[in-house]
Design a binder for these strands. Structure first.
Lengths: 157, 157
DNA sequence: CGTTTTGTTCGGATCATTCCGAACAAAAGG
DNA sequence: CCTTTTGTTCGGAATGATCCGAACAAAACG
């Protein structure tokens, strides 16, 4: 294996670890790493199995889960016979929006807590802080994404 | 069990699931839920074991990990004989800062990828986008936290 | 000192997840 | 139709994390 391929393989493994921390499986994370660093913009399942040393059954479920998460798109070339896979063009925006949704779930959890604890002001204080802070973040986060879109435009893509 | 206690217990379990999704263990998450919703501002280990039905050995490691994560503070009352535990007063800020650190690790991962793929512009494009977007978010996030601090001040606590 | 209280560490049991290979289903081509 | 190709589902093995009870260490008291 050439030096560069080895470095790319290392990157793929590291991406696997990173995405695993985010709740994907190791294999799903490695697929992300591969699609991020491969020379081609897309790949089919057998190629990914070969590149990553994964059984096609595992690849099948990994790709479906990535597809359902909106991180990977499945498509077929006109006249083609097998599915191909590529990163969604808004893959990072999606990741951030997922974070945002997480904020909102936390806000909702705080609401449930407030409903549970009743009137004691001391018990409510912490949960109100939690609710308001996560609510604030969920409010502001979309602006941040918009701002990024503008910056990206100006940068020219 | 009273209606309210039951609702609080349900909240604790739900908090356990939420925090588990963030990378804590179930028990650690339940401790967070308990400290968020308990009538008292702090608790000792036996009380938490009793409330959550957890062995003291498990509680010991959970509390230490929460302490190391900066989510929970360990302290001892003057003249007291056992440690007590309370939520860090900046517990939510800390959670957000952890998210921010995650953004920066992703940026660093993209840098590693760029170092690995070499000069091919097509391969660099995706990774540069990843690097720049996560870098942008890591840049702007502290401002968001500052803004929240101001809002919280104005709100009056 | 010896005793009691408090907190940590250890080994093993349990549980959930992930992954593989094989069987299966579905679709396309000839 | 029948065959080939493609993708999914199933059962089980392996892995890793979590948790428990018991043994252990350390500190506070008398």
């Amino acid at each position: 294996m050439g030096e560069e391929e080895e470095a790319v393989a290392a990157f793929v493994e590291e991406a696997g670890l990173f995405y695993e921390r985010l709740g994907l499986s190791r294999t799903e994370g490695r697929v992300m790493g591969r699609l991020l660093s491969a020379p081609e913009d897309d790949a089919d399942a057998p190629a990914l199995c070969e590149a990553l040393g994964v059984a096609k059954s595992s690849m099948s479920v990994s790709l479906r889960r990535l597809e359902q998460a909106g991180l990977v798109e499945r498509f077929r070339r006109p006249g083609g016979r097998r599915d191909r896979y590529r990163l969604a063009d808004d893959v990072f925006q999606r990741a951030f929006r997922a974070k945002m949704a997480e904020f909102d779930r936390f806000r909702a959890l705080a609401e449930r807590g407030l409903a549970a604890v009743g009137d004691d002001p001391r018990r409510r204080e912490r949960l109100e802080l939690m609710r308001d802070m996560y609510g604030f973040m969920a409010d502001r986060f979309p602006d941040l994404l918009d701002e990024w879109d503008r910056v990206k435009q100006e940068r020219g893509r």
